[in-house]
Design a protein around this nucleic acid. Structure first.
Length: 480
RNA sequence: GGCGACGUAGCCAAGUGGUAAGGCAGAGCUCUGCAAAAGCUCCAUGCGCCGGUUCAAAUCCGGGCGUCGCCUCCA
């Protein structure tokens, strides 16, 4: 049983067969760097992070490209999003771009999102975009009007195949204020003439201007992945016009199929309304990370299938936190027990159970990256692991190693839910020493039945964020 | 209006024909000096509604209801 992917292009679950055996070329639409990233971005990019991690776990050699949009993304008003921000902050446009680009990578790093192999910027690929536009003009798919270039959607009979939109149906046209320099209302800009006040501008065969929003993805995907590649991802909110336009431009210019599998993620909503920059109902990743650990945010993202919309609530976050604590608690316990574990493989009856969990996990992930089901497999495993670790019977170091490795591979390498080591402060060693000292003092008090003292130590450590748990073989501690 | 999703327990959510995974919350129990953690037990005769197909439907078909997304910037 191999990997199956729900292909939005064609709307059906299909067996995944890469263009080249063992290799995957993947492009995901990246952010417009005009503001801080919010939890909606976190949902999307964590979802694709897991997809990439799982493909790699499955043995594929993945080339992952995700663009940075730093030019050409216009507002309703016709203003460039970057320029508007620059004016508001009295900064240079590329300063804005740099600031938010760095911030974006900081946020993704903090969330444990593995960086794309290539993060091309639109502004760094103007020649490639101009070349592709020229090709479209030469082939009769685009036309110049008053210094701008538009794609003529009527020249592409397949236009609308991704989003199921028919040009005729659209035309009835709500918008009267269409630029009359367009031949058809649905035609979209490949190149826009720069008005005098527009700072971001480049020379082109059609005069000074700047590229349209959609062409960057087509040009950069072609440059780094070729005319035809395996997977194209993004948020479903960009299916039209952005993704649809990408396909039209690329296939008309390259005369070859564009992406073979389209994976689109559902939006994040707040009280049922989409979290978005324009609505202002967003929580930045930086703010969210002040309240929750990155693993908990990832766990929250995994609670629903990537293609579903997910509603953000504190309750849902708390549930994710509880679920994560349970999973990680088993790993932490296994690690703690290794310190005093006997050599050998006592308790190896758990090994077949670990293999079973791996198989269940794989089956879930192979089924269109079904993370809720994959997490459920880990939760069920955790029940059995906890039973063993708390049984009181000895568990050998080799067995504990295998348990830890299993979690490390599935929950760690693929899902990014397992921290490399326990949270420790910057003075980790000193802190550990102090806590161990208090634990031994408390053990002495307990031996003397001086429970007032022992409870005081436990309570006051708890107030400092150090949790003590008494186990048959001694007291273990952790940072809350 | 067009296109596309979705509606499963208090909350989140998996489940595309065979008799409702998993997590959170809640209740009881075991363990504990007491806790904590962990485990055990309980928690949807029912999957928004009405019809239909079938031996059998949350799952297929039809019809209405509701929510959301896109159609204009957003992952």
């Amino acid at each position: 049983m191999g990997l199956k992917i729900y292909n939005v292009l064609g709307r059906e679950k299909q067996e995944f067969v890469p263009l080249e055996p063992g290799r995957v070329g993947m492009y995901v639409c990246g952010p417009t760097v005009q503001d801080y990233a919010h939890l909606g971005h976190a949902k999307t990019y964590i979802a694709f992070d897991v997809i990439v991690r799982y493909l790699r776990y499955s043995g594929y050699d993945v080339l992952y490209v995700q663009n940075i949009t730093d030019v050409g993304h216009l507002l309703d008003s016709g203003e460039d999003r970057i320029l508007k921000k620059a004016a508001a902050l009295q900064a240079r446009p590329m300063q804005i771009v740099e600031h938010y680009t760095r911030s974006y990578f900081e946020d993704m790093d903090a969330l444990g999102v593995v960086r794309p192999d290539i993060s091309p910027r639109a502004s760094g690929h103007i020649p490639e975009q101009i070349r592709m536009i020229q090709t479209l003009i030469d082939k009769g798919h685009a036309y110049v009007a008053n210094g701008s270039v538009y794609f003529d959607v009527t020249t592409d009979p397949e236009y609308g195949k991704l989003s199921n939109r028919k040009i005729e149906a659209q035309t009835a046209g709500s918008r009267e204020a269409v630029r009359d320099e367009k031949r058809n209302p649905e035609d979209f800009a490949l190149w826009k003439k720069a008005e005098p006040e527009h700072i971001l501008r480049w020379d082109s065969p059609w005069g000074e201007g700047f590229p349209g929003w959609h062409i960057e993805c087509s040009a950069m995907a072609k440059k780094y992945l070729g005319a035809t590649f395996d997977i194209h991802g993004g948020g479903v909110d960009n299916i039209f016009p952005h993704n649809e336009s990408e396909i039209a431009q690329s296939e008309c210019a390259n005369e070859a199929p564009f992406a073979r599998y389209w994976i689109l993620t559902g939006s994040l909503t707040v009280d049922g309304i989409k979290m978005s920059k324009s609505l202002g109902n967003f929580i930045t990743i930086k703010d969210a990370l002040k309240q929750h650990r990155p693993e908990v945010i990832r766990m929250f993202v995994y609670s629903a299938h990537y293609s579903n919309p997910v509603d953000f609530t504190d309750e849902a976050l708390m549930a994710a936190a509880g679920g994560w604590e349970r999973l990680y608690g088993a790993v932490r316990l296994a690690r703690q027990m290794k310190a005093s574990a006997p050599d050998g493989d006592a308790g190896n009856g758990i090994l077949p159970r670990l293999e079973q969990a791996k198989a269940d996990f794989k089956a879930a992930m192979d089924d269109d990256f079904n993370t809720p089901k994959a997490v459920a497999a880990l939760q069920e495993l955790t029940r059995d692991v906890n039973t063993l670790l708390n049984s009181g019977s000895p568990v050998g170091r080799a067995t504990l190693d295998t348990i830890e490795q299993t979690y490390q591979q599935l929950a760690g390498d693929v899902l990014g839910l397992i921290p490399a080591q326990d949270t420790a402060s910057s003075n980790g060693q000193r802190e550990a020493g102090l806590v161990e000292l208090l634990i031994s003092l408390r053990a002495e008090a307990r031996r003397k039945k001086d429970f007032a003292t022992s409870d005081r130590i436990r309570d006051e450590l708890k107030a400092l964020g150090v949790i003590l748990e008494d186990r048959p073989d001694g007291t273990v501690w952790r940072v809350s």
